[in-house]
Structure formats: structure tokens, C-alpha cells
């Protein structure tokens, strides 16, 4: 499921859609006005974004509004964290090695 999120945000149009609706919820018409592509093309992108829970569709009266779902993006940011922590640990160990090398140099 998380892989789908990455495929979803790899596409520049979908990233642009997310940036727009992150600012404010939008109707399909309002959204498609921002793009040169057809309303059908935009709605295909919306379908992908909805399927991986980056977008929620909310009915309000006769209109549908697209809402950005920040929880899913948070998952994307967290995806890097274990890998970053791995290198953080590695580099903290390196700090001790470097301190030792420097003090050896001073003794010589």
C-alpha cells in the first residue's frame, strides 16, 4: 500500500493536485481549471490519489470536494526515518573514531 503512495506522488501532475488541495478543498471543476489536461485526465489522477488515501472525497450539498489527507503524507516522511537513524548511529560511532584519530595525531 505504501508503495502505491510513492507511485502516486512520483507523477508531477498529481503532486501539483496535492499542492493545490492542500491549500484548500476543491471541487472537480475548480481543480481542472488549473490544468491544461481534460477533466477526465484530472479525474483519473484523483482516482489514483483517492485509492492510496492521499485524497478524501467529501460530498457537500450537490458538490463533491477533494480534501488533502496529511496523515498519508506523514507516512511517507516516516518511511525514511529508520534509514536515516541507521546512518545517524553509524556517523555517531564515526565521531568517536575521528576523535581518537585526532588525539593520536596530536601525540605524534
Amino acid at each position: 500500500m505504501r508503495r502505491d503512495v510513492f507511485q502516486a506522488i512520483a507523477d508531477p501532475t498529481r503532486r501539483a493536485i496535492l499542492s493545490l488541495i492542500a491549500l484548500q478543498a476543491m471541487t472537480p471543476n475548480a481543480l481542472s481549471e488549473h490544468f491544461n489536461s481534460s477533466r477526465q485526465a484530472v479525474s483519473k489522477h484523483i482516482k489514483v490519489l483517492t485509492e492510496c488515501q492521499l485524497v478524501n472525497q467529501v460530498q457537500s450539498g450537490r458538490e463533491i470536494y477533494y480534501h488533502f489527507n496529511p496523515e498519508t503524507m506523514k507516512e511517507v516522511a516516516d518511511w525514511l526515518e529508520p534509514f536515516r537513524q541507521l546512518w545517524e548511529d553509524r556517523f555517531n560511532q564515526l565521531d568517536s573514531v575521528l576523535d581518537q584519530l585526532k588525539s593520536n595525531q596530536h601525540e605524534q
Binding site: F6, I9, W87, F91, D95, L98, L101
Partner: peptide, 22 residues
């Protein structure tokens, strides 16, 4: 959090960077 990781979605590359006092 001294270590920076940059890995853009959909790219084949990644960057790891850190400043050391040496």
C-alpha cells in the same frame, strides 16, 4: 538529527550528508 537524507519519490538516487568535526 545531524544526518540529512534526500530521496525524492520516483528517483533512482539518494543522498546522505553529515558534517564532522575533523
Amino acid at each position: 538529527r545531524k544526518t540529512q537524507i534526500v530521496a525524492q519519490a520516483g528517483k533512482q538516487e539518494l543522498f546522505i550528508s553529515r558534517v564532522f568535526n575533523a
